[in-house]
Design a binder for these strands. Structure first.
Lengths: 90, 90
DNA sequence: TTGACATGCAAGCAGCCACTTGCATATAGT
DNA sequence: ACTATATGCAAGTGGCTGCTTGCATGTCAA
């Protein structure tokens, strides 16, 4: 299992999570387009692909293949570790 | 305000947060000692100091000065942003 | 099969980041 | 004042990381 916190450290990766939160099951190209139009991020397809690998390693993104398409879904479960590790004092 | 996520990205900084969670109001030297004994981290005082700066920039650590001592307190409030940004699909 | 589409792999490079090193400042005790 | 204690500042360095580049693999439609 990859490093959850390192995965969250990059702003582009956080933007990807934002996109997947709005609509699950997006493909790599869809994410590229929406990152440009919605976030003004001009990243290459390969860059996004590598970011998705990191997010998947961290368990934040799950993928399902269908033919030549690969759909990406958000999984927020790993984020619970953060809230559990440093709970709010009350 | 510094980058919350970048502050969490470093394992030594997370260990500092763990220490402060156990006991608030620790000083720089106390943290150095406890990081070595509790976490096996052999970092220099200056390294820890720089980490504390990053944590304070991110709002995760608040400091109060008293004479030549500087006490550090944990503030978990910024962590709420994470849970709010990618909420669990209950 | 041919071509277009969608993704994967890997090497190279530039910028950043954590760490060290050395010196400086400030406070408290004697 | 002098010393020890506690922290602060700043330059230099090695390694990691995000990005690009180029090519390869795999899938679908005609």
């Amino acid at each position: 299992m990859g490093d959850l916190y390192k995965a969250l450290a990059d702003p582009t990766r956080r933007a990807i999570l934002d996109e997947l939160r709005q609509r699950d099951g997006q493909t790599l190209y869809e994410l590229c387009v929406r990152l440009i139009s919605n976030h003004g991020l001009g990243s290459t397809r390969q860059a996004i692909s590598q970011h998705l690998d990191v997010l998947e390693e961290a368990g934040l993104v799950r993928t399902r293949r269908q033919g030549r398409f690969k759909f990406h879904d958000l999984d927020t479960a790993p984020l619970r570790e953060i809230a559990d590790r440093w709970p709010s004092p009350e």
